[in-house]
Design a protein around this nucleic acid. Structure first.
Length: 509
RNA sequence: GGUCCUGUGGCCGAGUGGCUAGGCUCAGCUCUGCAAAAGCUGCUACAGCGGUUCGAAUCCGCUCGGGACCUCCA
């Protein structure tokens, strides 16, 4: 009824018709954050993108098991497999237990996801909670001949794997190309091949985060957790795996190799990768100094240097942020993100955010008007066609910008009916309401932040009183009084809108 | 250096062979005590050069610009 869903698959670099392995069940795995620092806006962009993918699959009636991991161990600092665990390092620097670091940033992550109105995943497994599964997987890989031990660490033999498998199946790169263009890294004596990566890493006694294994005390390699946990919860081959496109050449390449070596089956049917968020055309990343934290974006101010906790509710704010002219609400940011397709780079700028803020308010105003529209015996616009266009857009690889364009067509209809330029039947109005609610709230996951018109009883009755006094003043041509009321309300964040049917108001904050 | 992606109107941003995307800005009009809101109208673009085609922003080639990955990164 809603047509076929097409998904751009990184493996084929083409849009393919989505066919689940075991309908109506769908397995969806997304690489989650490493909780050693705050999530920045670029991370949020990816998770927002997969939130609408999850929501739309759910809307289509699929029973989705959405797994998004928390990486709380095994992610190395530096550019080789001999560095320090990022969480251990942060714990040492902040003089905290590693699990305190993990807890602190996990709580912050959840709070931000909540502000952006993301649905929680079905399962949110942690790497440290699945050490034994990872050890079992390493054993399997060694047994299949693709892993080898060296001084208490275990490495994956990429060249051997490549003889029978396409190691670069997802990156599109050949082994020769990768061998030629890989830097020589220090301290790799333990590895047989320069592309080999760590499955298990031996830890020195002073290392805080370490676990016993058949190869001695150590901790798992970064790529292993996703293979182990996706296999455990979604099976050896599952439907969709997602993540940022910067994960393709290393993390996902190695993840596929491990899974194939262990399970002898391709792990994933559809790979979805989101593009990067840029600032002035350059990727926002943790290593560059151009990142913006959600709490900074919401307030327009910089996080104070001595802010103890990075959860938005506990943050201490300092001066105005150099990249921000003002603060933008979470839903404005979410709307801004969804106005670009997930596969395109999204460039951050104040003017683009401001444009989205106004557009989003216009959309919300139209939704607020829906309940006040008068119906007649004829509809002048094709509402059914609008619904069809919305589904067509979502089915075309989750094209949220086009869905939004359709919702603005709906906005135009609502406003025209409200102005008396167009008419709508009761049945079509019901359909129009359904379209707005389904796509704006349910699928795009937006919510109305402003409380205007019909909201709480007390502010509503107070506002009606004030607006009646203003109307009286206007009737008596006491315009200095009516304008004073309007201007003072504006200062308080309340915008009054005079229409043919009287005056309405909205709180803009 | 290698691999890949990309260049759309004042700004953001869809669109992969023919049919006005959309948002924001700006100008005019309608409505209005004025303003705002809303509606209508206008500004009608596809980096440059060449090729394929009846027809290209869309396919191919070259040139120029931007970016990503190759090292931790969503």
């Amino acid at each position: 009824m809603q047509g076929e869903l097409h998904i751009h698959n990184t493996l084929s670099r083409k849009k393919e018709i989505f066919k689940p392995i075991n309908p109506p069940y769908v397995g969806l795995y997304v690489c989650g954050p490493t909780v050693y620092s705050d999530v920045h806006l670029g991370n949020c962009r990816t998770f927002i993108s997969f939130d609408i993918i999850y929501r739309y699959l759910d809307h289509l009636g699929y029973k989705v098991r959405y797994v998004r991991n928390i990486t709380d161990a095994g992610h190395l600092e530096g550019d080789s497999d001999i560095g320090e665990d990022k969480i251990s390092k942060k714990a040492r620097l902040e003089q905290m237990e590693p699990m305190e670091i993990v807890q602190k940033y996990t709580v912050g992550f959840h709070e931000v996801m909540n502000m952006f109105n993301l649905l929680p995943p079905s399962i949110e497994p942690t790497a440290t909670g699945h050490i034994s599964e990872q050890i079992e997987m390493v054993k399997e890989i060694i047994a299949s001949g693709f892993g080898y031990e060296s001084n208490g660490s275990v490495y994956f033999d990429v060249e051997k794997f490549s003889r029978e498998n396409n190691y670069g199946v997802i990156s599109g790169r050949t082994l020769d190309d990768q061998l030629e263009n890989t830097r020589d890294l220090d301290g790799q004596d333990e590895k047989r091949g320069r592309l080999d990566f760590a499955l298990w890493i031996a830890a020195k006694p002073e290392h805080i985060m370490r676990w016993p294994s058949p190869w001695g005390w150590g901790f798992p390699g970064w790529h292993l957790e996703c293979s182990a946990m996706s296999t455990k919860y979604l099976g050896q081959t599952f439907d969709i795996h997602g993540g940022g496109m910067d994960l393709i050449p290393t993390h996902h390449t190695n993840e596929i190799a491990q899974s194939v070596a262990c399970n002898h089956a391709p792990p994933v049917n559809y790979w979805i990768h989101t593009n990067m968020l840029t600032v002035n055309g350059v990727k926002m990343s943790k290593s560059l100094d151009n990142w913006i934290l959600p709490v900074e974006l919401f307030t327009g101010r910089q996080l104070a240097k001595d802010s103890p906790l990075a959860t938005p509710s506990q943050a201490i704010l300092g001066d105005k942020h150099p990249l921000l002219e003002k603060g933008f609400s979470p839903m404005t940011v979410r709307f801004f993100v969804l106005q670009t397709h997930y596969s395109s780079t999204l460039d951050f700028s104040n003017s683009a955010l401001t444009a989205s803020e106004k557009g989003f308010q216009r959309l919300m105003n139209a939704i607020n008007l829906l309940d006040k529209l008068k119906t007649s015996d004829k509809t002048t616009s094709d509402i059914a066609a609008l619904e069809k266009s919305c589904y067509a857009a979502m089915n075309d690889d989750f094209n949220s910008p086009v869905v939004i364009a359709q919702l603005f067509e709906g906005t135009r209809i609502v406003n025209s009916v409200n102005d008396g330029h167009e008419t709508i039947t009761a049945a079509d109005l019901a359909l129009l309401k359904k379209i707005f609610h389904t796509f704006t709230y349910e699928i795009l996951g937006l919510k109305n932040e402003s409380t205007g018109g019909s909201g709480n009883a007390l502010p509503e009755s107070l506002m009606q009183l004030i607006l009646r006094m203003r109307a009286d003043a206007r009737t008596k041509k006491d315009f200095s009084m009516s304008d004073l009321i309007r201007d003072e309300l504006a200062k308080a964040g309340v915008e009054v809108k005079d229409g043919k049917e009287g005056t309405s108001w909205i709180y803009k904050g």
